[in-house]
């Protein structure tokens, strides 16, 4: 039996050279969303409350369609990473595994549905 501390085991092995990807990805998507969301809020807010025809006419235009698709993809990925981050903090074992899966399933489901809707309306 070796009486080594965890630190002694890890010393001289070098850094893991990873671990900051999640933070950097959240930073990039945060800036993207900060740039897109105020405009998207106006597009969506003006469309909400209108007739079905006016809603279809709005999201059939290139700018609202592209913006909404981009927001969906970036926001759902940003959400999934954020939820995984929270689960990593507060859950262990099976609960953590199920939680991480749920994060990707929720984000993927909402994202795919929204993209389908935009494609159907705009194309």
């Amino acid at each position: 039996m070796r009486y080594l501390t965890d630190r002694k085991r890890a010393e001289r092995l070098g850094s893991a050279r990873r671990g900051t990807e999640a933070h950097w990805a959240q930073t990039i998507s945060a800036v993207a969303l900060a740039l897109m969301m105020p405009t998207w809020l106006v597009v969506f807010g003006r469309a909400l409350g209108g007739s079905r025809d006016s809603v279809l006419a709005t999201f059939a235009q290139p700018f609202p369609a592209i913006l909404t698709a981009l927001v969906l993809v970036v926001a759902m990925r940003h959400f999934a990473r954020g939820m995984v981050n929270m689960i990593d903090d507060y859950a262990r074992g099976t609960a953590r595994k199920i939680g991480i899966m749920a994060a990707y399933f929720i984000a993927g489901g909402i994202g795919a549905t929204g993209i389908f809707a935009i494609l159907k309306i705009a194309l």
Binding site: F79, I106, A117, I118, K120
Partner: peptide
């Protein structure tokens, strides 16, 4: 963290509304 997670409910509502318009 709380607001970031809460917004997912609205995202679901918006997407439902959008896919319903498309349907």
């Amino acid at each position: 963290r709380a607001t970031g997670h809460a917004i997912i409910v609205t995202a679901a509502l918006v997407v439902w509304w959008l896919v319903a318009a498309a349907t």
